[in-house]
Design a protein around this nucleic acid. Structure first.
Lengths: 205, 205, 205, 205
DNA sequence: GATGAATGAGAGTTCATTCAT
DNA sequence: AATGAATGAACTCTCATTCAT
């Protein structure tokens, strides 16, 4: 649970959440490097020093908020991806819930879009660890599709997964860049259709 | 070309290029915020102050290097996308040359991956302006495919474009994150195949 | 009082004063542009960054020290210029206390001599605001003298005020330039005598 | 002649003057520390490096322009202060020509107002040397007045001189601060009258 | 003499982090 | 636990001065 936290668990879960919410809000508006700890603390209603009772340092705040947000999505996947579903249905569920979650938290969406791409090797590695379970879910879905015969056996599975995630990600990015104004979730069915049929796919699907 | 340069053109084009190359190299390794001007200057073999003879400020260095790199790709598109080609062929060319260009300059690829996603509104807007012509090329290709009957008329064209770019982008990102060790261009044909046929597409293409 | 401070009042009034005293000392010796914040901070016994907890920026340090010093003189005027005094007596008091205050703080005198004359439009305007009440006191005294019949009615009042302040100021400047070695206050009576009688005035006063 | 110049006299007197005029203009608007050599050079129509062919360094530019301007006034004094004049008349001539000269060159007036008060010990000493002959003229006039019986013998001559110069100076300062909009020379007669009669002087004078 | 690109020391300011209270 | 004043290293950018052409 909240596995990466180095700091001992504090009694006040409310303050932990308040700081993360504040960090998401401030970083979404200004980016990581322009999100001063003092602004985050102020937005959270705590003193600057209090941030360091809950997080090792500023980087830990970033990693923690991404981990919590992504984990929530992963848990939602585990809940919704019941074994009865075939690969197509699973893909549809994954994309729907991914869009739904981000649609409900545009600030987190903004922050995640930026920080999934980090140059800093240390952060990059940690982000990779966080994303691993989600990538595993996508891989499993592709594999299931092949096993079930829905997807061709000679498909390049790694690139297939990247196409799925890349399309989702680019859709979210575009939505974020326009100010999260429209309903992201509504795009899910069109995204799924295109991913399944490709550009040349017949409408018969 | 290099339209955004505010500083008067200097005689020494070599120094301009040297600074940009140095900036790409340093930023690829450390990110924008950890790429101090002094390190860039040192890597370029010039004095700190010289950077400011060629660029307005640090942000201008970043914008300039992205603009120059993207423009090179766009010019390559204009050269290779001859009118005789049908939409499929064009798509194949775009992806191939995109991968080829980045494959030949992994440091630029790294920097571009990060900075195509920027929180800072000012940078974001400028990046958007730079990418516009490339997006236009993708849009035109999708439209051509529909017009020629290769792509279904009821396709969501905007999402189609995002699928194409998102898949390309994610492929590059993965390549960059693993240290640009393998041949990126070799992936082009598999990427194209998946984009055209989708996950369920028959191998008949 | 201290109306211009933008920074929230800090608990430690002592540190605010220490920084101002240090700034006066350093600027008196080196001038505004050669008074580095690091030297002021060191002289005040605080860290560089602490200066920015008490002042918005370097210019604010300058304005603040002049404001505080001039305000002290203005308050002293308000205390000593009791209504019973006639214009001559008031003039004598003003000059005496002005010289007395500066005599007691030669470093402040030095700084003020230089910065009452500023080219920078922004600083100049602020200095003007600070000096306004003092000029008002001089004007009121001239007006009182005319009203009481001590000063001729056809006197050019604006130039009269400038003569008074100009003579005081020049006396202080000369004193400062020689290293503040002699007793400035002792000059007050001769200055008053000359201002009242002029160059040709009979000793009858 | 132009005694302080360390640099050998250059052939091109026009360039020397152009640089000084440019420096006066730029410094009047921005102050010494914000008057970059590059701006002065540009305003003078010469290259940056050319400034250093005519002046030792930036400080030398400042000193030179003040020296030239003050010397011009001193020479004018020597021309107009014919021996036949009594002290009052001389005083009137001095003030008139001082105001007239500055009225004709507001930018120089601005620069001189600021830099007659300098903290930097080195500049201060040089300014003192430049002003010495002018102060001598004022002293001589006061002495003449006492010798001729126009001014009381028990006058404090040093303070008398400071009153004269201080009043002139303050008048010029006020004129400069308001943007040199009105006719400075027109104030001369009122200034002289006040200096001769003082605040209490009868109008009979 | 004249140029102006290049230099690099230097300064103001920021802000993550600490720690006495 | 909570605070927030204090710290000081670090960074961007400026600009007087130089010197090869």
């Amino acid at each position: 649970m909240r596995g990466g936290r180095v700091i001992a668990t504090r009694r006040d879960e409310g303050k932990y959440q308040a700081i993360l919410r504040a960090a998401i809000s401030v970083m979404a508006r200004s980016g990581y490097h322009n999100a001063q700890i003092s602004r985050i603390a102020k937005a959270a209603g705590v003193a600057d020093g209090t941030v360091y009772l809950y997080f090792k340092n500023k980087e830990d705040v970033l990693i923690s908020l991404i981990r919590d947000g992504i984990n929530k999505i992963i848990q939602q996947c585990e809940r919704e991806l019941v074994p009865e579903l075939d690969a197509r249905a699973k893909l549809e569920r994954i994309i729907s819930l991914y869009f739904r979650e981000l649609n409900g938290d545009p600030d987190f969406a903004t922050v995640s879009q930026v920080y999934l791409r980090q140059v800093d090797a240390n952060i990059r590695r940690q982000i990779g660890d966080i994303m691993k379970p989600f990538n595993d879910i996508l891989d499993a879905t592709v594999n299931q599709g092949v096993a079930e015969g829905q997807f061709p056996a000679d498909i390049n599975r790694r690139i297939a997964r990247r196409m799925v995630f890349g399309t989702m990600d680019e859709t979210v990015t575009a939505w974020v860049l326009t100010g999260s104004k429209y309903d992201l979730e509504a795009l899910a069915s069109d995204v799924v259709k295109l991913l399944l049929n490709g550009l040349t796919g017949t409408s018969g699907k």
